[in-house]
């Protein structure tokens, strides 16, 4: 896994990470670079500090400490030697690199009219490895399906960070687009529209998705969610619209608009449970109006992508497909 991001690491850091044991390299999730502080790697649920010889330790004392030079170089490589072309990203605090890997940035901010203009002196990097796990959506799709309409219910995926929201909805997009419905439905794909504000879902390169998101999928890359959803509705006639991490008032408004236009929406939001979502002012309205027909709750403790529960609009759990009696199943 780690080799996918190593082309962006400056030689000094790469020398350290390349000596890591294969097991750690394969299960790596995050590489955290902090100037003057120990180099950290998060893998398979745990973490460790990297020593210069590539061994891992729980103690930061003997760990490799990236220098100023390392950090400057890392930023240069991440931005393709063109910091100036990443002004918007530096304002928002993260860069998405080729392959959909997201790099969070921290440092000293420069303000203009009281708003963050950009991050200068970037000295903290969180390199998150994107992974395409196909078929993670297979277990979820039957439970969010609207068999009568031959599509999906409006679905909100709720999960704390790092539990696989993005991976799950990416795979749902792929399955719906290919028409890989569970066996008793004819394999008819739906037109899918993805609004990918952070280039994480489809990992577009010049607008072309690098992840397999399905043959009937259109992607609006790098576009603000609310605006992108409206553009999609107006121009691309999607049947299912997929957005990641909604949370602002205008996002909710756009979701509402899409739903009124007869488009099914699959969205994700940060939270531990649907009740959490209810507390967020922007999303409360949506939840109260019972717009969403399904809530998928993910959690980290059940393995990498653990589906804790699938609930319907009233909060009643939808059982996993194997426990659905065959009579009900035949209805589709």
């Amino acid at each position: 896994m780690l080799e996918r991001i190593e082309e962006w690491l400056p030689p000094n850091l790469r020398a350290v990470t390349s000596r890591l044991p294969a097991k750690v390299r394969d299960s790596a999730e995050e590489v955290r670079v902090r100037e003057g502080r120990p180099l950290e790697i998060v893998y398979g649920g745990g973490y460790g500090f990297l020593n210069a010889d590539g061994s891992l330790g729980p103690l930061p004392d003997s760990a490799y400490r990236p220098s100023r030079e390392d950090c400057v170089r890392l930023l240069e490589l991440l931005t393709n030697h063109s910091v100036y072309s990443f002004e918007e990203e530096l304002k928002r605090g993260f860069i998405t690199v080729r392959g959909g890997h997201r790099v969070g940035l921290a440092g000293r901010t420069v303000l203009e009219h009281g708003k963050v203009k950009q991050i200068r002196d970037v000295c903290g990097f969180n390199i998150r490895l994107a992974r395409e796990l196909k078929d993670t959506g297979k277990a979820v799709l039957p439970r969010i399906m609207d068999a009568e309409a031959r599509t999906v219910h409006h679905t909100l995926v709720v999960s704390p960070p790092q539990a696989g929201k993005t991976t799950l909805i990416r795979d749902l997009a792929r399955l719906i687009s290919y028409g890989s419905w569970p066996s008793h439905l004819p394999g008819e794909g739906r037109k899918v529209g993805i609004v990918d504000e952070r280039s994480e879902l489809a990992a577009c390169e010049r607008g072309v998705p690098r992840f397999d998101v399905g043959p009937r999928t259109d992607v609006m890359d790098g576009c603000p969610k609310a605006e992108g959803m409206m553009m999609m509705i107006r121009s691309m006639s999607p049947e299912v619209l997929i957005v990641d991490e909604i949370g602002r008032e205008e996002d909710a408004e756009a979701v509402r608009e899409a739903m009124h236009a007869g488009i099914r929406v699959i969205a994700s939001a940060h939270g531990r449970s649907p009740e959490d979502i209810l507390k967020r002012p922007a999303l409360r309205g949506l939840a109260e109006e019972e717009f969403f027909g399904r809530f998928v709750v993910l959690s980290r403790r059940l393995g990498r992508i653990g589906v804790e529960a699938v609930l319907d609009a009233k909060g009643r759990p939808i059982p996993a497909p194997e426990s659905i009696p065959s009579v009900v199943r035949g209805k589709g």
Binding site: H81, S82, Y84, L90
Partner: peptide
């Protein structure tokens, strides 16, 4: 200096 700062600076 090329490439390491914002547009204004460049």
């Amino acid at each position: 200096l090329l490439g390491i700062s914002d547009r204004e600076d460049q």
